[in-house]
Design a protein around this nucleic acid. Structure first.
Lengths: 235, 235
DNA sequence: AGCTTGAGTGAACAGCGTTAACTGTTAACG
DNA sequence: CGTTAACAGTTAACGCTGTTCACTCAAGCT
């Protein structure tokens, strides 16, 4: 039972590898069930022995890519030692951008899939969603570490408004007990970083900036300053 | 020849209306060529008298939606008179968000289509792209007007770095001759606004903020301050 | 009236995701 | 060791998709 399970796991890995190959070569639309089967020299129904549907195959691929990205970002931090947590955040931001630029097709599959969430209130249990949560927690935990390492100045509650403060305070437990203003700054950092990278990779910055690297660097310096970090300034 | 052309234009409008109906009810995937034909009581090949392909139909729909959004934002500004240009920018930002929240399916079609631009260097001439340019110029022109109306303080070139300054200066003619630092601030405004709205509507802010309205308001106040505008502060 | 143009149809093709019934091979058990 | 059951994989088919071709039929213009 063990040898057969290993064989099965190997086949699953091959399927996902073939799917990824199609993804990088032809984009999201090219990774179809029949195309994957063709890539492996199999007939389409054979894949149903390993995935219950095409969507499940895509979801598994998404989960794998999320985990790969998460691992890449995590060991990108560990190599630098543990001296300056601010530098770790800088590495995380640049690492995320670099990964997206190096793997635009995979990035598009992970973050470009516009999900207007037509069905509300359903806590998605798909492996892709869970992997996305693990990915998000990397940033959350690092921010909480930075806060406890060197608390940064944050806007007072009066500036944010009572409604926002209430929502942010409700999330305080997930941010290591940080106050609302500090969570707000952290969220601002994430929001700007995420939006920036998405816009650059999806080409929505192209019409004004041919190469967004310098702009990204300046923005990173700006939002790093807001967290009281001494990021490397652009030359 | 005139009456027949009008009949044809009316049919084209009906086709796009049916496509939009399918879009709002079933999302991007639901607006297929056969589904549109079914909606109109026609056979699929009949649509090829009006659009050369399914993609062309979608592109025409995109162009129409862009123009509708552009018109909505423009007459949203004109109603308020021309006293405070800062208030106009505030109206524009909120108008864009409101439109996206009111029409999430259309918003996803316009901005959620992740295009990693596999083929570079081709100046797309599709009507959708042209309409997107018209949409973008609404923001660009308003920002230029604000600059000439009440120039805002901007970061000096040394902070931005020579490479970024060079790129921004190259775009100065499209921004009414604004200096690099001012273009940088304007671009920051647009980048943050755009990313913020996309993240909210695509549900990527849901895992931390159940209702992003208050966060959006605070962010809008923050980036408005960066442009020296006296936006309404959150209570 | 005659001819032309154009809207629309029906049949067909290739490709898609998916299901059902069937064939071998392979591991496990009495 | 021989039987059996599980499993990988195939073939055939269904309904769906975008697209093309050949055709009909009615309206418009000369």
């Amino acid at each position: 039972m063990d040898s057969r399970d290993r064989r099965r796991a190997a086949t699953v890995a091959e399927i996902k590898a073939a799917a990824r190959r199609l993804l990088v070569s032809g984009g999201t639309a090219a990774v179809g069930l029949r195309a994957v089967a063709r890539e492996l020299g199999l007939t389409p129904p054979a894949l149903y022995r390993y995935f219950p549907s095409h969507e499940a195959l895509i979801s598994a691929l998404i989960a794998e890519l999320y985990d790969e990205l998460t691992a890449a970002l995590m060991d990108l931090q560990s190599t630098d030692g543990e001296v300056d947590l601010g530098a770790r955040l800088y590495l995380l931001a640049n690492g995320l951008r670099d990964w997206g630029l190096a793997h635009p097709a995979e990035f598009a599959l992970l973050f470009g899939t516009a999900v207007p969430s037509p069905d509300a209130e359903d806590h998605e249990e798909t492996p892709g969603h869970q992997a996305a949560m693990r990915f998000g927690s990397v940033f959350k935990e690092l921010v909480a570490q930075i806060w406890h390492w060197k608390p940064f100045p944050y806007p007072p509650d009066e500036v944010l408004g009572s409604e926002l403060v209430a929502q942010l305070t409700r999330e305080s437990e997930h941010f290591g007990g940080m106050p609302a203003g500090a969570i707000y700054l952290s969220l601002t950092y994430w929001t700007r970083l995420y939006g920036l990278i998405c816009m650059e990779i999806f080409g929505q910055l192209h019409w004004v900036l041919p190469d967004a690297a310098a702009y990204f660097e300046a923005q990173l310096f700006e939002i790093g300053q807001a967290l009281g970090l001494d990021c490397p300034a652009p030359e």
